[in-house]
């Protein structure tokens, strides 16, 4: 029996209940533990839907999603929310942080929602926070600063610290460099890759920017694994 980080089996999700609603289908997909996948495809090809399904914010109408051996589609909403808090880190394009909290407040919020996690005491959390900041080349005095005062580049790094603070096994990243210029982008990507490698995190990196594919060995085209169709085309 192979030990996958992500196993998707016959997943089907419709937006809305009408027969004309857009339907996302993904028959089969596996990701090995520790793999870093560059998931590309045109906009509107279902990348976001896949991320929503993986994170558990959306639940599929049918099929199974197994993460780290747990069938998350069988979990209750509350349990799936907790599973996400404890095992999945997410980084968006922008707006990863709550603007009115300090950097520290944002990171602590992630720790708070992952409560029940046996991954360590408060001292460990602080230790991990500082070491992640160090890895991402952020100084420790940034912790007390309000998020509003940070540059976009700094915010995206803090977002990674926030996403990795609970040492998640899976990291979902959605176009994190779209707001960065080329040099900032490359520096950010290098730090992201080395941090994820160091923590042996399985990463799904979504982008339509082929320039970033150089950082990855595993490239997956979303159109090759999933179909997005409306009711009229797809039929019943």
């Amino acid at each position: 029996m192979h030990n996958y980080a992500i196993e998707i089996d016959n997943v089907c999700h419709s937006y809305g209940k009408s027969p004309q609603a857009t339907t996302f289908r993904l028959p089969q997909w596996h990701v090995e533990k520790g793999d870093k996948v560059f998931l590309h495809g045109n906009s509107g090809s279902g990348k976001s839907t896949l991320l929503n399904l993986l994170s558990g914010v959306l639940a599929p109408q049918s099929g199974n999603i197994k993460l780290l051996g747990n069938n998350t589609t069988a979990l209750s909403n509350a349990k799936r929310d907790l599973f996400r808090a404890q095992h999945i880190g997410v980084v968006f394009q922008t707006f990863n942080l709550i603007p009115y909290l300090s950097v520290k407040g944002n990171i602590e919020l992630a720790v708070h929602f992952a409560k029940g996690s046996t991954k360590g005491a408060k001292a460990d959390v602080t230790q991990r926070m500082l070491s992640l900041l160090d890895t991402l080349k952020l100084s420790a005095d940034i912790l007390e600063r309000p998020v509003k005062q940070l540059s976009i580049g700094q915010q995206q790094r803090v977002a990674i610290v926030r996403a990795l603070i609970n040492t998640p096994e899976i990291l979902l990243v959605d176009e994190p460099t779209s707001a960065l210029d080329a040099s900032a982008r490359d520096a950010f990507m290098e730090e992201l890759m080395s941090t994820a490698t160091a923590t042996q995190t399985t990463m799904i990196f979504v982008s339509h920017d082929q320039a970033l594919s150089a950082f990855f060995s595993n490239h997956t085209d979303i159109q090759a694994i999933a179909t997005l169709s409306n009711g009229a085309q797809g039929g019943a």
Partner: peptide, 15 residues
């Protein structure tokens, strides 16, 4: 909306 989205991905349920 963005604030709510952030809270959601951190694992906060709708309740």
């Amino acid at each position: 909306q963005t604030e709510i989205a952030v809270l959601r991905i951190l694992g906060a349920g709708p309740y």
